[in-house]
């Protein structure tokens, strides 16, 4: 077998050494930095994109938080407004009711006063009518004429009795 023929051992070792060193230099200075750079670049880009995605996610979450906060605030505000409006309306209606009550009670009072006056007046008339009737009745029956003072006293006594 030619492999065991030492004639060409030195030349093979020599050229092995030369070519191996050349390949080492070419790969370590030319090819490997290139491939390494490509891989690094890709890794960097992937990391960049992941970072960007994380950043966007954080931003979105922040926006959601802001939105929810605004929503809660406006809800609270609406409730305050509603409560205030309800209170104002209750106050107003209460006031109006009081006014109405006042007016009604005033009117009732005035009415009662008027009724009292009319009653007094009516009672006065009754006295005159009774006196007149008593005079005419006694004049017709007896023909006597009674003086006014006695008639008035008798009417007053009769009214007093009737009470």
């Amino acid at each position: 077998m030619p492999q065991f023929d030492p004639t060409f051992y030195t030349t093979q070792l020599f050229w092995l050494f030369v070519t191996f060193v050349v390949l080492y230099l070419l790969l370590s200075t030319l090819a490997m930095p290139k491939i390494g750079a490509v891989l690094e670049e890709r890794q960097r880009k992937i990391d960049d994109n992941l970072d960007k995605a994380a950043q966007l996610k954080a931003e979105a979450e922040q926006a959601i938080a802001l939105y929810e906060k605004a929503l809660a605030e406006s809800r609270a505000q609406a409730q305050t407004l509603l409560r205030e409006a309800a209170e104002a309306m209750a106050r107003q209606s209460e006031e109006r009711q009081k006014q109405l009550n006042d007016r009604l009670s005033q009117q009732v009072k005035a009415g009662e006063a008027r009724i009292g006056a009319a009653k007094d007046e009516a009672l006065g008339h009754v006295r005159d009518v009774a006196a007149e009737a008593a005079r005419s009745i006694t004049a017709k029956l007896t023909g006597a004429t009674l003086d006014d003072a006695r008639i008035a006293a008798a009417v007053a006594a009769a009214l007093e009795e009737g009470r």
């Binding site: 004639t7 060409f8 030195t10 030349t11 093979q12 020599f14 050229w15 070519t19």
Partner: peptide
């Protein structure tokens, strides 16, 4: 012998 051979 450092001949350039087919191996080289």
């Amino acid at each position: 012998n450092l001949s350039f051979t087919n191996s080289a």
